[in-house]
């Protein structure tokens, strides 16, 4: 009885979370151009999508920014975590406080604050400004997932490696990095996802002519969204779903 109730409740929440996604997938096969009507099944939008240069450019920008910002944030964040292991408690607390600012701050405030900075220093808005903004809000995700790994790290292993003749750099890459790798990977993955899904901060830091998928969709909202957009997001969603499923099911099988 209790289990049944629990299952039903989970089911309802699941429907709530995924109903819009299913709607979008259905719309991507809709022959009619408006959202409101079902005009029959078609795969036309999936073919048109690859001919639409504006969408392809936006996709390229989105992926490039997500990849670059996540990678740079991972490097800066991991190095900062390494530094924190040798810091005094008070210094570490200050650094973690600074790290929490972009996490807890409202996106709109983060966005306009960076926009005002660029305006004041006369920096031209474009790809670079979006990238800087994304790195800024991605670093905290990396730090928060790498830092716990450093705390669990057994420090004597590093010292043993140095005693046995490794240089500190060698010891870091051969001993420490493999140990903290899961944290680095999940930090990178979180950062990549956040960058991909961001609209608000990009909205304030982008220049005219440079669009990511989010900003492109936002300008299309008033005119009506192009069905190719539904097709593209369906492709992205389904491929990520398959990848995540494959990655997550594998280790479980091994355990059995």
């Amino acid at each position: 009885m209790k289990k049944c109730l629990q299952r039903t409740y989970m089911g309802i929440i699941f429907i709530f979370l995924y109903a819009p996604i299913i709607t979008l997938i259905v719309l991507s096969f809709n022959k009619s151009k408006t959202r409101a009507k079902w005009g029959g099944f078609t795969t036309k939008w999936y073919i048109d999508l690859f001919k639409n240069r504006a969408i392809m450019q936006a996709l390229y920008n989105t992926l490039a920014i997500a990849l670059l910002s996540a990678a740079i944030a991972t490097v800066i964040g991991t190095i900062a975590c390494l530094a924190m292991t040798r810091m005094k408690k008070r210094d570490r607390a200050i650094l973690m406080g600074i790290t929490n600012i972009p996490m807890l701050n409202a996106d709109i405030v983060t966005g306009i604050s960076i926009m005002l900075l660029f305006i004041s220093f006369g920096i031209k808005f474009g790809f670079g400004t979006i990238l800087i903004a994304h790195i800024t809000f991605n670093i905290p995700y990396v730090i928060l997932s790498v830092n716990p790994r450093f705390k669990q790290l057994n420090h004597s292993i590093y010292e043993a490696a140095v005693d046995l003749g490794c240089t500190p750099v060698q010891a870091f890459f051969r001993v420490v990095v493999p140990d903290i790798m899961p944290g680095i990977l999940s930090g990178f993955f979180m950062a990549f996802t956040m960058s991909l899904d961001d609209f608000v901060i990009t909205h304030f830091t982008k220049g005219p002519g440079v669009d990511t998928l989010s900003t492109k969709i936002y300008t299309e909202v008033k005119k009506g969204i192009k069905p190719e957009m539904y097709a593209l997001s369906t492709i992205i969603f389904v491929s990520v779903f398959i990848i995540l499923l494959a990655v997550n099911l594998k280790p479980e099988k091994k355990e059995k």
Binding site: F14, L17, Y18, A19, P20, I21, T23, L24, L27, R35, A36, M190, T193, M194, L196, D197, F199, L213, S214, I217, Y218, V221, I225, M229, Y230, S233, I236, F237, V240, F241, L244, L245, N248
Partner: peptide
């Protein structure tokens, strides 16, 4: 998986889809 996965479908599109619903 359950909570991060929806984020891969654009946030604006997901919210827009509620209009249709």
């Amino acid at each position: 998986l359950v909570f991060i996965l929806p984020m891969w479908m654009n946030f604006l599109l997901r919210t827009m889809a509620w209009q249709t619903l």
